[in-house]
Design a protein around this nucleic acid. Structure first.
Lengths: 101, 101
DNA sequence: TTGACATGCAACCCTGTGGTTGCGTATCAT
DNA sequence: ATGATACGCAACCACAGGGTTGCATGTCAA
């Protein structure tokens, strides 16, 4: 992902992070990334279904990944026919500090 | 591949916190609480409309407060005809640590 | 008491969005 | 080449949730 370049960095960017964290399935995906911070979309889908018993389609997970990427929590790179996903926890380290002294 | 054994979807309480943080109006309310951590619903409503130019009804803000209270981010106490609101930042200090090492 | 005031409650509306199905595309294996 | 694979895209559906209006309740001041 590239720097957002928006005028109010805190406002717009944080909105996407909070939006990304709002869904329980996406939070579960972040859990999976905490274990393995680099995996393909295919691997992630398999793990969510088998280990976490998530009943969901591949397309739904792909849309979740898009949101996580927009929020900067995941970066993706095309490797052949695979989409390689890399976890990035940086946004999580700052968003909450907004209300903490 | 084995089941992960983690609490499903990160637990009930965290769900409420993330749900509370999902809305930009509620985040703005938390900003206001950062300045004054104790104020009535009436005061809060007036400040949001005047200082932040939020176009919203009192009833809508009351429903937001209900959500913030369910998440433990705000505690309320009835004082006469006023509803006194107190900010509590404790939940914010833990939710994000879930994905940080 | 009477009226202004701060809040609670319930029904509605409408948009956002999570999920699905179906199909198309590009890559790899045989 | 040919099929299987991993993924992208678009349309559609269903429901949660933010916002509103209208009215009821309880408290304080005159």
């Amino acid at each position: 992902m590239q720097p957002c370049g928006c005028v109010s960095y805190g406002g717009m960017h944080n909105d996407l992070v909070f939006k990304a964290l709002a869904d329980p399935t996406r939070r579960l995906m972040l859990d999976e990334f905490s274990d393995r911070n680099e995996q393909t979309l295919y691997e992630l889908t398999a793990r969510l279904i088998m280990r976490h018993e998530v009943a969901i389609s591949r397309q739904a997970l792909a849309k979740h990944i898009d949101l996580l990427e927009e929020a900067g929590l995941v970066r993706s790179e095309k490797r052949g026919r695979y989409r390689m996903l890399v976890f990035n926890d940086e946004p999580l380290r700052t968003v909450v500090n907004r209300w903490l002294k």
